[in-house]
Amino acid sequence: MYAALADTDLGRVIGDDDGTGDRRVDGVDDAELLALYRSLVLLRTYDERSVVYHSQGRIGTYAIFWNHEAIQAGAVHALRDDDWIFPSYRESAIGLLRGMPPTTILQWWRGHPSGWWNPADWNLGSIAVPIATQVPHAAGLAWGKKLRGEDSCALVFFGDGATSEGAFHEGINLAAVMNAPLVLMCNNNQWAISTPIAAQTRARALADKAVGYGIPGVRVDGLDVLAVHEATRDAVDRARAGGGPTLIEALHYRAAPHGTADDPRAYVDSARVAEERGRECVGRYERYLRRAGLLDDALVAEIKDAALQAMREGITAAEAEAPADPELLFANAYVGPPGNMRNG
């Protein structure tokens, strides 16, 4: 049976539910703490509503990111708007944190062309479906910005399974050799569909892989939004100062199916999942903010209502959009299309 990695060496900021171990992150003020909460709620609401929309046949197959919100929001909040984000499909809704309308992302999952954006409009790469192949893109972007004398950096998300791919190795190595300003955020939820981390690697920790590339590797609690935020901010500061890439491993345990087409009961430890769901990251942060006196019932309700409203408007707008024009088969395959492209 798969044994969980020890979590005693994890970076943490949020203490236990009785407040033991709570601390503040230097430089993160009350407004930013609340902004992080709003982002967590927005992502959580997007995810939970999407599963419902899928069950209602309103979106297609959907990759669930329930309980991954702390990693996503914690990391993105450490970036400037001119920094680039390269998501995997697990971070499909990350654009919400840059102000992208929910409709756009819902349309992506509805297979509608209006769900595909211009990366330059959001400094956000397309949702990468093949595993780890976005890592070299992020390395190239970060390196290319540095070559141009700009001080923006890049953040790339990928999962634990991605660290077995050649593209992960080639991308992280390229970034390291070029001293590219890149933050590599490994969402280690310990499962690649049904494959547990022990079948993926013999490494003690995925963050240990950084050693082989000559770059820093850190490991944080993936359910602690402030720990992720602090580690990402430190990595971004180092990248911007010319210190090159950092590998961050955000450790948690996948507490939801891989996607709407997956039934994990065939392979997962249900007791462990139940335990993990009890530690879910949004409620944990909510309790931290309440202990700090920053959040009360009224504000929680206001923030959750706003997120729900955004989703209601998003799906309504998506469903009101005209069906895709089949002409779009051809419209964007090339800038200068070859004459025989339409021969079918």
Partner: peptide, 9 residues
């Protein structure tokens, strides 16, 4: 893959 990112830059 790096060249894809360079294009974006």
């Amino acid at each position: 893959g790096g060249a894809v990112g360079l294009c974006m830059a």
